[in-house]
């Protein structure tokens, strides 16, 4: 599979072929792949051009993408909530490597390191060795002493930390990852204080004086009227 196709397939798989079929853009497949990314969130025209430029570039080779996919799946194996594929983590890493070019060298070096390691020890590329052999390599670079400065640790440890960070952020900022984390916001609601069971859990309570100052949410839609001294009377 060509590298560009692999990215496209990942994209198509995540958005469903129906979007692809229904889209009536009479443009190249490249553009379709990009429009499928539906990144429409109030970018300025300049920002859109910049993002499009990044999408047109290729950084990782097809083999590198496949290795990344394997690694990301080892970092966060799929579960009932979702997977690396659904969270589009590999696409994010490809994008970020172009968006933040300082990621490029360490990411690529690490991928080459792990394949060398795998070839030396198991006579095969990382993606082609069995799961326990893969874990054997990871076990040597995946753990670190958090009391130490990351920059002082061996390069493979730093690389894996970067990859783990990108994988974690990619997953937990995705639709499935946010659901798994349980974040409840980004939706219209009315904040009326910390729920009582949470206050109880921490042995906290609101002072009455303080609460008296706070908004009575049943009157939030009544237009504010003040007396001359600035006391709210509505």
């Amino acid at each position: 599979m060509k590298r560009r196709d692999s990215i496209k397939n990942m994209t198509l798989a995540s958005f469903g072929a129906s979007i692809f079929l229904e889209s009536c853009y009479d443009v190249s497949r490249e553009k379709i792949a990009r429009s499928l990314t539906r990144y429409e969130y109030g970018r300025t025209p300049e920002e859109k051009l910049y993002d499009d430029k990044l999408f047109e570039q290729e950084f990782f080779s097809n083999d590198e993408l496949l290795t990344l996919d394997k690694l990301c799946n080892l970092i966060l194996p799929p579960n009932d909530f979702g997977s690396i594929k659904e969270a589009e983590v590999v696409q994010l890493i490809e994008f970020m490597a172009k968006d933040i070019p300082s990621y490029q060298e360490p990411l690529r070096k690490g991928l080459s390191w792990i394949n060398n390691e795998s070839k030396n020890r198991f006579n095969n590329l990382f993606v082609d060795i069995n799961n326990s052999s893969q874990k054997e390599i990871l076990d040597e670079i995946a753990y670190y002493d958090p009391n130490k400065n990351m920059n002082d640790l061996p390069e493979p440890v730093q690389w894996f930390n970067l990859l783990r960070n990108l994988t974690m952020t990619g997953y937990f900022t995705s639709e499935v990852g946010i659901k798994e984390l349980g974040y409840k916001g980004n939706t219209p609601n009315v904040w009326d204080g910390v729920p009582q069971n949470i206050l109880d859990q921490y042995g906290l309570s609101y002072d009455k004086d303080w609460l008296d100052k706070c908004i009575d949410q049943s009157k939030r839609n009544d237009t504010a009227i003040w007396d001359k001294e600035g006391n709210l009377i509505s």
Binding site: R38, E40, L92, F95, I178
Partner: peptide, 10 residues
């Protein structure tokens, strides 16, 4: 009200 995954850089 956009979600992080609506941006290519989250």
């Amino acid at each position: 009200m956009k979600w992080p995954y609506e941006s290519p850089r989250r």
